[in-house]
Write a protein that binds this DNA or RNA. Structure first.
Lengths: 219, 219
DNA sequence: TCAATAGTGTCTGTCAGACATTATTAC
DNA sequence: GTAATAATGTCTGACAGACACTATTGA
């Protein structure tokens, strides 16, 4: 009843770069669609991976040197046609990484704006679409977009991250008021931005990604 | 690199029965944990299933005679220990079914209140917990809980379904106001409830499950 | 002084929960 | 009439967006 099945993991790594939401695409080194830009991924290794998320972290560590970033399961895609090698099942993950933590080997990978993408192999276009949807949907009422920032950040940076992540403008005054009222941030010290201009307070998330009822933008 | 992997699907079938949220558990007919109550599930068959959701629908049709209900992918669970047969991967689904559409063969399956469950095999306890979380979370700002009702329903029934699905009390007046303002329902005809008492208007969802920004209960 | 960003204050309309009130049925 | 549920109306406080205003820096 049970034939050979291809079990893989794929990552949608999103980051903010140059004021735009971008995704990391790897140039495929091996056979199916060799040379094409695609989501980074790899096989699940039953002999060493404790589960799919473990496999995903291993792949991201090996391929991109990433660790300590935000990772959540997105969805699972399967079928006989999505991979030319045969019936396959792929567990896709959403990874959010601050731009300064991304060390991209430019000969192998590059950042692409999510609203201006090349054609993608497999069903990676669909997966990427779902990932952005997840960020936009869940981001409005959670601290998800803050995962795109360094550990400490100013409210202006946080505000900008939400605007980029959610793809909409958000009133700065309301944003500050709501964020502070939610009591999800801990105070830090002073820190000056960009060089000149008035310095801004810095904050950090009290806990990891949390969800709340109020929305921080969206209508 | 790729050993034999066990690929399955599992369903958390939720319904409202006797004013409580309940789940369908099957008595396992075969070997691992034979005789225990567990989530209904089965193997993915690469030769006949177009994808995991297809497999899930086949299993639910075969085991429970279900069709035409709401089904969404929940998450995927994997690892070497969750199934004694070996490294397994299971795509779990959340199914919402109106009670009157559930035809349960009492010798094989039964309804259990989600807050009073027996011990479950595999990681089914975790899966079930995640499913209820999904319903409670997404249900507050979507028409998900309406999938627990027949195609046509009164506002009182819808209100009651939301209270059970979300596990909280919701002000009836606010609920009506909000639901009607969202413009997600189409009018039907009259219909009397329970027998006596004032008859109520009936409604149906305009579209399938939709999401909105306002919440229909929750704070 | 100006320019630029950080941060506060205030106004107004919308909408939530709460709860009172009316409507419609069976008996 | 009463009992029970369906449906509407009204009041009040909370909070959103909008936007004016002040604060703090470098040059």
């Amino acid at each position: 009843m049970q034939l050979q099945i291809i079990a893989t993991v794929d990552a949608v790594i999103l980051t903010i770069d140059g004021g735009a939401l971008k995704v990391v695409l790897h140039e495929r080194p091996n056979d199916p669609f060799q040379g094409m830009a695609a989501l980074p991924g790899g096989y699940i290794r039953e002999d060493e991976d404790k589960n799919a998320e473990d496999a995903m972290r291993r792949v991201l560590s090996d391929k991109a040197g990433l660790s300590g970033f935000y990772l959540e399961q997105l969805a699972t895609y399967s079928g006989p046609d999505r991979d030319p090698r045969g019936w396959s099942i792929s567990v896709a993950y959403l990874a959010l990484v601050p731009a300064d933590q991304l060390k991209i080997d430019k000969s192998k990978a590059a950042l692409f704006p999510v609203d201006d993408l090349p054609a993608l192999p497999f069903d990676h276009g669909r997966i990427l679409h779902d990932a952005v949807q997840r960020l936009r949907g869940k981001g409005a009422y959670s601290t998800l977009p803050a995962s795109l920032l360094s550990k400490t950040f100013t409210l202006s940076e946080m505000h900008a991250a939400y605007e980029v992540a959610l793809g909409m403008q958000i009133d700065a005054s309301s944003f500050r008021r709501k964020v502070l009222a939610l009591n999800i941030l801990k105070d830090r010290a002073e820190m000056r931005q960009d060089g000149n201009k008035r310095p801004a307070k810095t904050y950090a998330l009290k806990e990891g990604v949390t969800t709340f009822n109020r929305t921080l933008g969206a209508t």
